[in-house]
Design a protein around this nucleic acid. Structure first.
Length: 914
DNA sequence: ACATAGAAGCTCCTCC
DNA sequence: GGAGGAGCTTCTATGT
């Protein structure tokens, strides 16, 4: 990649300044159209340093300059459309539908030139849907006379819901929108709600991020050469499977083995002036100027473009500070010129990265550019239905990617909770945003550029860290799901899974079922959930007794639900299927799972699971491979994990296109059956079962031979795998479910579910909790724990004293709770954090859905105040005593039962009074 | 009519 | 996805 053109640096500015010495400083013209902030900002006036009045006017390229005030068409040179793909090899990034050309278009990545080119469908593919009317009946209805009717054809599709081949009529339409209209005119329609570009992907059998070749405007897949050894390895791993399974397995090898495309990408972040503190500028109206734009690319461009503002002086000190940074800064006296330059830079990058660009940065730039009189055709951004696109490439909004629940939980193990840039970067990169003590509009030029650049740079890193782990994850998910990069990064896991299954249906010429048909055919659930409001019964949780137990072995079913899906052939079509001869009867709920055919979802989930367990988890640790390859395979196995783990969940999610509650219910029923039976077996063998949740069993000091026996028994009886997950020196159970402290032989600790671990617990209580755990972690027997009583007593006393003395600051006292929905939708109740959020709103600080509110408990009617508005003396100390008691009390509970001297005491105070 | 204790409901966070 | 715990709010039965 060539180094980007260097713009004028700060040194250039300083030189220019020296050259201008003695002469009058340049005068900033008024910002285009928009008024400058009405009153001078306080921060600027306070600067006592020598004011240099250095203002630099950056001219836009001459070729654009002439268009600034004209409607000349050549203005569009800035927003170049994608070139058409010439002969060559490319990576498919995304399939789109182009309304103007009324055709599907492939967005292809040219890895040599680093640009996105396009290939317009040359197959003559047309939109269509299916109906069970015969062509004659269609004619009778007069449908063929409709202006958007484009022909029909009789086709056969295998109907998985009825286990029969069906004769259907395929009705072609002139454009995708017409499908919506015509499908209403027939009594029954299939495959009529699939987006056209997805439908196209299925029909052509496209796999995004794999290589394709264009020759004479014809499209060919570029076969990835799989080594013989690899094929053998796969066949060996799956030797017990059906031929169809093996064929599928082999056809999937390239998905996991072909290298990912190397893309040239740039991250952008903007800052906007706002007169009111805490108000986020509205991108729709875009009424305030963009004051700074930061760019950071993976080929070394690091730049901040800053708007010179009236009333805000640039000092020499600021320039010196800026000169020491590793990014360039360019100053503009015209916002319009600045935005044009921004677009000119981005145009050289085929992949644009933003953090919330769909809803803010790009939306703002787009509307602001329009407002400043830049013609739409020239603007490189394009408004989509739920996203912003760039005309020359693709736009990845990383906020939307990291916001995907499956990415959050399965790929990154819930390391971040809030999905703002600071939280995600903090958790994944260990880096944070620049902390601000004043509002954006009050920052000086240095502070602004510095703050802005950090954001853009963090955005880039969230794409590139760990040798491009996030990008590779996207690539792999694109290949498995068959969704384009722009689509998959904006859709939840249920859409990924749906797309893969639909693609496979089409490949096998299966009819894609309608959601309502699945529900009406398969019946409803037969169990009822333990928790009110949930639709069916879930996992079994063992009721533990409080106390300490030494030498605890934890057995764990290896990916229980996916294994059940495979082992018992669970799929929407195999559950309660008609015309079925052989079936499994599901315990407790009584559904019948057909054994006659291999269920499609069972097969695919099973394949991914087996691939992960038998091949890629091993490859990720294979010492004969270099680090780079191992990392790639680790990403492969973690992409599979995301898919596998989500596959059960979506079956029970109403929003899923193949929603099938009896299937979901059968999976959990088998799970309960397996774990309960195994626990019974252990008990029969005189092993004490202490606890278990969903797929785990805590056994008290079991002999090794009996463990081996259990593992064997589970394999033989259920075809499931159970293994030793971990061994604890001791486990302290509090007597509550999902709530224990496990101590490993080496002294490391697992704390599960205890209050001290929860995010909402105040910092000072958390710290005391950790101290207390430290005190007991080295205990070798329950009696030793009792010996720590004096220490614990002092710790608690100290806490009480400190509270009284107002030793802790408000931040340490704060409870933190997330607003899980928009503030106005708390209609049934008014929880404390919502109360606090409303108080903040009165002060102009708006808290949105997903934000965490920090509040303290205070005396008085309201009982609560946001940290920002509270004062130490009003804190309700009693409430904090309660918090200490419940948090630390949980630990004591575990120890109080086994230690005779503590028996009967559950309350902290009782414990201390002894 | 009103106070109040306990039950029921809501919300959040965590576990698997 | 459901299960489970905590702490709060709101509803309701009961007593005065």
């Amino acid at each position: 990649m060539k180094k980007p053109r260097r713009g004028p640096t700060l040194l250039d500015f300083l030189k220019q300044k020296q050259a201008n010495d003695g002469s009058k400083a340049l005068k900033a013209p008024k910002p285009v159209e928009e008024k400058a902030p009405k009153r001078p900002l306080e921060g600027a006036e306070k600067i006592e340093n020598k004011i240099v009045n250095l203002i630099v006017s950056k001219k836009v390229d001459p070729q654009f300059q002439k268009f600034v005030n004209s409607g000349d068409r050549r203005y569009a040179a800035l927003a170049q459309p994608r070139r058409e793909a010439g002969d060559g090899e490319y990576y498919l990034l995304q399939v789109v539908y182009d309304g103007k050309r009324n055709k599907a278009v492939l967005l292809l990545y040219d890895e040599e030139r680093h640009e996105v080119v396009e290939w317009v469908d040359a197959f003559g593919h047309k939109p269509y849907f299916l109906t069970n009317l015969t062509p004659e009946e269609i004619r009778k209805l007069g449908l063929h006379k409709h202006q958007n009717f484009a022909g029909m054809e009789v086709v056969y599709r295998y109907d998985l819901l009825h286990f029969e081949n069906r004769k259907l009529t395929k009705i072609y339409t002139t454009d995708p929108l017409a499908v919506r209209e015509l499908r209403e005119k027939v009594p029954k329609a299939w495959e009529a709600k699939i987006k056209y570009h997805d439908n196209y992907t299925y029909d052509i059998g496209l796999v995004p991020t794999l290589k394709y070749k264009i020759k004479n405007n014809k499209l060919f897949p570029v076969p990835y050469k799989v080594s013989e050894g690899e094929v053998e390895k796969v066949l060996k791993a799956f030797e017990e499977e059906s031929d169809e399974f093996k064929r599928l397995a082999i056809s999937w090898i390239p998905i996991f083995e072909a290298p990912p495309p190397t893309v040239k990408a740039i991250a952008i972040d903007i800052e906007v002036f706002t007169p009111a503190i805490g108000r986020i500028p509205d991108p729709e109206t875009a009424q305030y100027p963009v004051i700074s734009v930061a760019l950071s690319s993976n080929d070394g461009l690091k730049k901040v473009l800053v708007l010179i503002r009236e009333n805000l002086k640039l000092t020499e000190d600021q320039l010196k500070e800026l000169a020491e940074e590793d990014y360039e800064v360019e100053f503009y006296d015209s916002e319009k010129s600045m935005l044009i330059e921004v677009m000119r830079i981005i145009r050289d990058y085929p992949v644009l990265l933003t953090y919330n660009g769909d809803n803010f940065d790009l939306a703002y730039l787009y509307n602001r550019a329009l407002k400043l009189g830049i013609p739409k055709e020239m603007i490189i951004f394009k408004k989509g239905s739920d996203k912003f696109e760039i005309k020359h490439g693709i736009h990845i909004d990383l906020y939307r990617f990291y916001d995907i629940a499956a990415i959050k939980t399965y790929a990154f193990g819930n390391k971040y909770k809030e999905v703002n840039l600071d939280a995600v970067a903090g958790a994944l990169l260990g880096e944070h945003k620049v902390q601000l003590t004043k509002s954006i509009s009050e920052l000086n030029y240095y502070e602004l550029a510095h703050y802005n650049f950090r954001d853009a740079n963090l955005t880039l890193k969230l794409f590139t860290f760990n040798d491009y782990l996030p990008w590779k994850l996207m690539v792999l998910i694109a290949r498995i799901s068959k969704l384009g990069i722009e689509d998959l990064t904006r859709k939840q896991v249920s859409a990924w899974i749906k797309n893969l299954f639909f693609w496979e249906h089409r490949r096998r010429k299966y009819l894609i079922p309608n959601k309502e048909d699945i529900i009406s055919m398969k019946g409803t659930v037969k169990s009822s959930a333990i928790i009110k409001g949930k639709s069916y019964q879930g996992a079994f949780v063992f009721e533990p007794s409080a106390g300490i137990f030494f030498n605890v072995v934890v057995l764990d079913f290896a990916s229980l639900y996916p294994t059940i899906i495979k082992q018992y052939n669970i799929s929407y079509e195999t559950v309660n299927a008609p015309k079925c001869k052989n079936y499994y009867e599901v315990p407790e709920v009584g559904h019948r799972i057909c054994k006659d055919v291999e269920g499609i979802t069972s097969q695919i989930v099973g394949l991914l699971r087996d691939y992960r367990v038998k091949i890629y988890k091993k490859k990720a640790k294979d010492k004969s491979l270099d680090d780079k390859m191992k990392m790639w395979y680790d990403t492969v196995q973690s992409a599979m994990k995301v898919y596998i783990n989500a596959s059960y969940g979506v079956l029970g999610a109403e929003s899923f296109e193949l929603y099938c509650p009896p299937a979901a219910e059968s999976i959990t029923a088998y799970g309960r059956f397996a774990i309960k039976s195994t626990m019974d077996y252990a008990k029969k063998n005189k092993i004490a079962v202490l606890y278990g949740d969903t797929d785990s069993m805590f056994l008290w000091d079991p002999p090794q031979n009996l463990l081996d026996d259990i593992i064997e028994w589970v394999k033989n009886n259920f075809g499931l795998e159970i293994e030793i997950d971990k061994t604890y020196r001791f486990v302290a159970f509090t007597g509550l479910k999902k709530n224990y402290i496990g101590v490993y032989p080496g002294g490391e600790i697992d704390v599960k579910g205890l209050l001290g671990k929860k995010r909402n617990t105040p910092q000072f209580v958390k710290e005391a909790f950790i101290k207390m755990i430290e005190m007991i972690r080295n205990s070798q027997s329950p009696e030793e724990v009792v010996k720590t009583r004096e220490e614990v007593k002092n710790l608690v006393k100290e806490l009480y004293m400190n509270l009284k003395r107002q030793y802790y600051d408000l931040d340490e006292l704060a409870f933190h709770m997330q607003l899980t929905k928009p503030i106005e939708s708390y209609t049934k109740n008014m929880p404390q954090h919502v109360k606090a959020a409303k108080m903040l709103a009165k002060f102009g600080i708006h808290v949105n859905q997903g934000d965490v509110v920090s509040f303290v408990k205070v005396k008085g009617a309201e009982g609560v105040k946001p940290v920002q508005l509270a004062k130490l003396p009003e804190v309700d100390v009693e409430k904090y005593y309660e918090a200490i008691e419940s948090t630390l009390g949980q630990i004591l509970k575990a120890f109080s039962l086994d230690a005779a001297s503590l028996s009967g005491t559950t309350k902290l105070m009782a414990f201390l009074n002894k």
